[in-house]
Structures are given as structure tokens and as C-alpha cells.
Amino acid sequence: MKLSGVLFFPATPFDSRGEVDVAVLRAHVAAGLEHGPGGVFAACGTGELNALAEGEQALVVRETVAAADGAVPVVAGAGGALGTALAHTRAAAEAGADAVLLLPPYLALGSAEGLHAYVSAVAEVGLPVVLYQRGPLVLEPADAVGLTRIPGVVGFKDGLGDIDRMQRTVLAVRAAHGPDEITFFNGLPTAELTQPAYRAIGVHLYSSAAFCFVPEVATAYRDALETGSELAGTLLSEFYGPLVELRSSVPGYAVALVKAGLRLRGVEAGKVRAPFVEPTAAHLSELARIIDRGLAAVRAGS
């Protein structure tokens, strides 16, 4: 599975009854595809995997695969208890997904041997697996090498932001496998803010939650970063920096602001599910100003 460009992490829309809104989901994915992402990651962090029942995860992945229609790879979120992670992965395989992004087990990480068994069981389903280091899951480089040696493990996504640890991990894994065998991702919330640092250690792929609601800004930023354009710095100061400050003000805003941004731009994505909370009126106003500044910067720089 080869990935490039901006990676699209769709939100999971909910209707007025709190159920997955399939029609809005299809339209949301189709609209994102018009901006040329390199891959679609369905029912992952931005897609509220934490709040989806197994049947809902299967539905979201199935509908995303159908909407993508082979245009780009589709990676499905999986995780939680081993039985749940296996159910997620089997559903993704049945839906025709290309891989799974495996989130850490909740509250029960166990030993390195236990984690190896967990990842191995998921990989045995047969879909390629991208590991997600985040939250309480903090791997030493040697542990990362061991996990990436499991047949079927093809990627490593970092959601910690410890550049020293990540540099050592990249070096160790590439020494063990070669330079191209394992794909590395920057998986921090609003990853654009830290991507210059990740590029410096050889990690060129990153998650873009912003692509959900401002694909114009997300694609312009990536192009500017690749070409060395001054627009990259402008977008960091005018859009991404302020967005991160707002995101950091309330736990769970990394997802809640994405859905709010979609609503501000005319997509009826519904509200987030508990334990996330909706942005306050003041924060919604600030988000609208940030979006306007980002779009204005893109127009001025084009």
C-alpha cells in the first residue's frame, strides 16, 4: 500500500437522532476526494472510533469504501479490547478496506510480549496494519522494531510528538527493514504544525484533520511545504497556530472543532458524542475567524 499527499480523515456524521448519517457521510467523502487526497482513513480518531459500536464502525468503513470506489486507498480504524479490534479488522476486510490503523488497547497495555500478541492476532486477519503510538502507548525503538517485524505490519504512526524518541525509532526500524519497508506518519492532532520537524527526521506523511473542513487550506499548506513557499509560514501563523491554541483549550476539541468547522461550511455533520463536548459560542466564533483567515491567506498566496 503506497500513500502520498494529504491524508483525509473524515468525520463520522450523526443525524438528529444520534445515528450515523450515511447520506452525509457519502457526500463528505466524495467532496474530500475532489481535492485529491492520497488516502482516506475511515472511523479513526477524527471519525470518533472511540464512540462507535462495532456495527457502526463496519457501516462507516463500508460506505467510505463505496464512496472512494477505488480512487485511493481506504484505511479503517480498529482498536480497543482484542475482540473488538478483531471485529473491526474483519469488518474492514469484508468491506474491502486496504488496511487498518490499529489504536492502542484501552487501559490494558500489558507487557511488550502481550502487545506483540495483540498486534499479531489483528495482523493474522490478513489486512495490512499501521500501528498507532499515542496516549499511554510509548514504545522504545527496540520494541517498535519487534512489532514491525510481525508479518502484515506495514506502518507506524506517531501521536506522541517526542522527536528524540521518534528519530531513534525511525533510525532503528529503517536499519532493521531498509528505508522503504515501513511507512512512517506524523499522527499528532493538527499535524501540520509539527510537520516541518517530522520532515527533518525523514517522516513525510501526516494526518490532516483540517482537510475535513478546509481542504483548500490543507492542500495549499502541503504544496507550500513541499516547494518551500512562504505560504507555509503564513498558514502556520494565520491558521494552524491559532487553531492549535483553540484546540488545546478544551479536551476533545481536536474532534469537536472539526465537526463544528464542517457545520460552519455547510455540512450537516451533527454533534460529537460523549465524552467529547461541543464548542462554546465564543469558541465557534473564533473558529469561524480562523477559517476565514486561512482561506484568505490561500487566496492571497495563489
Rank of each mutant, 00 (worst) to 15 (best):
Y253R: 03
G261L: 00
L236K: 00
V244Y: 13
G261Y: 12
L243E: 07
Y253Q: 07
L257Q: 01
R222T: 10
L231G: 05
L257M: 11
G241H: 00
R222S: 05
T227E: 06
L235A: 12
F239R: 01
S229H: 08
P242Y: 04
T234G: 07
G228V: 14
L225Y: 03
R222N: 01
L235H: 06
S249T: 02
S229A: 13
P251H: 02
G261R: 06
Y221I: 07
G241Y: 00
A254Y: 15
D223H: 00
L236Y: 07
V255M: 08
G241T: 04
E245F: 04
A224P: 04
K259G: 07
E238K: 08
Y221H: 05
S248Q: 10
Y240P: 11
S229M: 05
A254G: 11
L236V: 15
A256R: 07
G252I: 03
T227D: 11
A256Q: 12
L257C: 09
L231H: 01
E245Y: 14
V258M: 00
R247M: 15
P242V: 06
G233I: 13
D223N: 01
S229T: 11
E226R: 04
L231I: 09
G261Q: 08
T234Y: 02
E230S: 01
A256M: 13
V244G: 01
D223A: 12
L235V: 14
E226D: 09
T227F: 00
V244H: 13
Y240V: 10
P251R: 01
E245M: 09
G261K: 00
E245R: 13
K259P: 09
S229C: 05
F239L: 03
L262V: 10
V244I: 13
S248Y: 04
R247N: 14
L235C: 03
K259V: 03
L235S: 10
A232G: 06
S237A: 15
G252A: 10
R247C: 15
E230R: 00
T234P: 09
V250K: 10
L235Y: 14
G241M: 09
S248T: 08
P242S: 07
P251W: 12
V255N: 01
A224K: 09
Y240C: 04
E245L: 13
S237R: 15
A260S: 12
G261W: 09
A254T: 12
L235N: 10
S237D: 12
A232W: 03
L246T: 10
E230P: 03
K259M: 04
L257P: 10
V244T: 15
E245P: 06
L243K: 01
A232Y: 14
G228D: 08
T227P: 06
D223S: 05
V255D: 10
T227L: 10
Y240H: 13
V255Q: 02
E245T: 15
T227Y: 02
L243W: 13
S249E: 06
L235P: 06
L262Q: 07
L231K: 06
G233V: 08
L225Q: 12
